[in-house]
Design a protein around this nucleic acid. Sequence first.
DNA 1: TTGAAAGCGCTAACAT
DNA 2: ATGTTAGCGCTTTCAA
Lengths: 335, 335
Amino acid sequence: MVTLADVARHAGVSASTVSYVLSGKRSISRSTRERVERSIEELGYRPHAGARALASNRSGIIALMVPLRTDIYVPVMLQIAMAVTTTARAHGYDVLLLTGEEGPEAVRRIEGSAVADAMIVMDVELDDERLPLLRTARRPAVLIGLPADAGGLGCVDLDFAAAGALCVEHLAGLGHREIAFIGEAPGVYERHTGFAERTLAGLRSAAGTHDMRLLHRPCASGWTAVAATLGRILEERPGTTAFVVQNEAATDPLLALLRQQRLAVPEDVSVVAICPDQVAAQASVPLTAVAVPAQDMGRRAVEQVVAVLDGGETAGTVLLAPELTVRASSGPAPR
Amino acid sequence: MVTLADVARHAGVSASTVSYVLSGKRSISRSTRERVERSIEELGYRPHAGARALASNRSGIIALMVPLRTDIYVPVMLQIAMAVTTTARAHGYDVLLLTGEEGPEAVRRIEGSAVADAMIVMDVELDDERLPLLRTARRPAVLIGLPADAGGLGCVDLDFAAAGALCVEHLAGLGHREIAFIGEAPGVYERHTGFAERTLAGLRSAAGTHDMRLLHRPCASGWTAVAATLGRILEERPGTTAFVVQNEAATDPLLALLRQQRLAVPEDVSVVAICPDQVAAQASVPLTAVAVPAQDMGRRAVEQVVAVLDGGETAGTVLLAPELTVRASSGPAPR
DNA sequence: TTGAAAGCGCTAACAT
DNA sequence: ATGTTAGCGCTTTCAA
């Protein structure tokens, strides 16, 4: 294995000089730098991550905690994870993948062993049990999601309340008066996941403002579950003229079921989704939707983390403004 | 920060004793062990990952290379990644997430900096450019997928050729004579991804044996693409009585489109999928399918890697036998 | 602008 | 059964 000492010897300089050429933390004469760089190249030298971590107290790793539950919003999760990884690499960091399964213990483990310089936590619950630990940790943490009390932790999320309101306003403008909200799986609400509750709050408040009736139904994934949910909604509220859907797994079954019931979209009923643009665009009826900017969220989270690590700036809350794209699934209320 | 030396002092023993209590690499008297363990507990000691990596030449990290392309088989990818992470944790390892984007350079980086003890590589192409590097690396590597020439590298994969054959045989037994194969996106074949090509080969060979006509059509994701593909198939081969689908994103649209065309499943046409069981079970018509055992694949890959790391046994190729589950989407050929 | 040298916290060979 | 000690490869003062 090629070490820094080998490079120093090969270039005829001291070890510290090589180190400084690498880190750029002090000025090096042009000729020396070039000589060292050539030696590095020729010998194929790579700094040993462990040695560097020990000496510098920096591992160059960002830990990413992903929920293990693969039943919900899978594409969003993967998109975020990928964006985090790509952005982290662009800043010279690698990403350690943790499953939410480990819970608070994972936070202790990462913190204690100094294996990562910072943490990014996804799928945050309103009163998440990992938060106290993250707050007192010596390493920065950024949440993707918004808990009840961020309390000094950096947060990145879509403004889901505004997203919900935006859906309602779009439908109100089209003359709809009675709408149904097909939400995430019941478990998501039971866990008090921030984004789900905030969306619901946004919908309710805007529905109130616009004097609309709103029916909320959580919905598990799977064709059968969607069919059951739709059946119950149509029975309870036969006057429903529009659906807001925040459940990636439900959009396609919903459209197919409406078709089966001879309900034309958007002539008979409108559908507005809250999902990634790609999902909305590829549906059987291209969906009017508020985009969940998964890539953006991942990218911003890393940028916050890196800002703290490199600059020392303390992280705040970044709420991304929702954008609604009108496609083929929404239209004027019938009659 | 609490160090091993702190623990040693607190317990009244030497540093090495603490180290050996932790590693179990030599016998320690019961009383000493308990005293040390109590000190560790009381002080809240965690070994410093970097220091350990430097001294032991082991990082306790397994690198996982995941394709960046999020357009294909997303749930499978995430399921595998999660299974890898969970299994790795069970063996005391953490997982570093790499995107395929970096290509061979990532292999060099990981290898050179000793940041990971081993690599698991997903989405392997038949003649993958990362293979030569992985072979000469000093750290073990296991592929999830099967290249043209594994050449000493450990491999884990579903036996996709057998899976394809199994689909054909099931349909042959039901009297079908003319079948269409809706495959992955064209790009997947262009990249010569192993599993896609092997499935096709298995289908073709079995179709030959059973004297069936087989039409293969790659298919991009998205409703429109599936509709176009189905349209062309029905036009070219109006006698088609069964579909084999290896494209998670296409199954649901396909079923909906068939319904629209008044083709009843399975009375008029049969559908057999190659996809995770969960996807098959949740479809609008529960699908007869060969399961892609994503969890299993992830788990087995880690077990291979760990076997090499811990035991030194050299890894072979593990081809998982396909299993076909009959559900509601397949039945006797019409007429 | 460069070098010398003291650790960083842990492991493992060598002693006893 | 336990202790002593020499590194592992790098960063970073301190000195020149």
